[in-house]
Design a protein around this nucleic acid. Structure first.
Lengths: 207, 207
DNA sequence: GTCTATAACGAGATAGAC
DNA sequence: GTCTATCTCGTTATAGAC
């Protein structure tokens, strides 16, 4: 079963040095935002000079684009692993929530959620790359939701695509707010409740 | 019925000039983020100099704090109007969603959702002010949810406070992602679905 | 209350040596 | 590939005249 649908426009050729730069930049972008860190910050953490960073990523826009592309590839790989793994649709959705949970417990925001906030200030190539990420998430969730509904394991009123959008937004937003309180538990509770809402109800007035 | 619960720590004394500055700063902060605009941007839009802005708001941190405080006051007033107005709990929740919808149709992100993303880079006083906003939203929603559930008009599994947090996150996140696509309709659909999830179900297997 | 002028700093980026 | 050195620009902020 091939679940890889739309890879990022251009996978970054990875060298050890470039990878280390991306690692640090990613951590900074996920905690402070893309406009919240500079080449100087990365250089300091790696004990190199700013000039050497420019050798690997000519401009910050290039760095940002590579950042999203790599994040997207890794995420997509995780999604494929879940999709191709065991369990019913509900179990897979819960593993999807765990993917996000792993991010917030490392005191980060989802890279793409963070960049979504900064969208208006991003270079156009980054904006395009960002949409690809959300599109991929939406598609993956849509398949899982349809699958679960057809199997009678999940219930929801609207088209699967709409529910998928609701889920992506709910998880991104839950992370966003949870970070203000430094409380991953807040995210987890919201994530689980969002999936629980998809329960097939047989009794009346579940309150 | 008094619904005003926790006003922001310090309401900004409003002069016409300060108000105009806040208006412009608010628009910029909601579209570009707090770190995405400068005094120069405000000065240009108002045809004044940067120095004159510093007369009204000594530092950008002061400006930011005033920004949140004013936003909080206005929002709280709107919440009180809804709470004290007609309609059942569900109708009030829908009007709450409309409050957010009005923001995104003006091509903005919720100010506090935007600031939540930038949380780690914000001056401490702004961080504190920000939590007050989310606390107030959570409290207001919790009351509405409890009210609706007691009246048998709303159904949900978890404590009202948890559902309130889920709703705040879902709406903030829906706005965040919808802005990437420049599509307010995305937000609206998610918002309505989130409220629809609170329907009391009498039939089985609502799919 | 708004201006001119400027300080002090950090940003992204480049040239050219090693 | 990484360095030193430098450039240019934008940023927040202040002093002091009007």
């Amino acid at each position: 079963m091939q679940t890889q649908v739309s890879p990022p426009a251009e996978a970054p050729r990875s060298t050890p040095a470039a990878d280390k730069i991306l690692d640090v930049a990613e951590q900074l972008a996920q905690t402070r935002g893309f406009n919240g860190f500079s080449y100087a910050d990365i250089a300091a953490k790696l004990n190199v000079t700013k000039a050497s960073l420019h050798y690997h990523f000519r401009s910050k826009a290039d760095l940002g684009r590579a950042l999203i592309a790599r994040y997207h590839v890794v995420f997509e790989r995780a999604l494929a692993a879940i999709a191709d793994g065991p369990g019913d649709a509900r179990a897979k959705l819960l593993r999807y929530v765990d993917l996000y949970y792993d991010v917030i417990v490392s005191d980060r925001m989802c890279l793409c959620g963070m960049l979504a906030a900064e969208y208006a200030t991003l270079p156009v190539p980054m904006q395009a790359e960002l949409r690809l990420f959300f599109d991929a998430n939406e598609r993956w969730l849509t398949v899982r939701l349809d699958e679960g509904r057809r199997a009678g394991k999940l219930a929801f009123r609207e088209p699967a695509k709409e529910r998928a959008r609701l889920l992506v937004g709910a998880l991104e937003g839950a992370m966003l707010v949870a970070r203000v309180y430094g409380d991953g538990g807040r995210f987890r509770a919201a994530g689980l409740a969002a999936i629980a809402d998809l329960h097939v109800r047989r009794a009346s007035n579940v309150a």
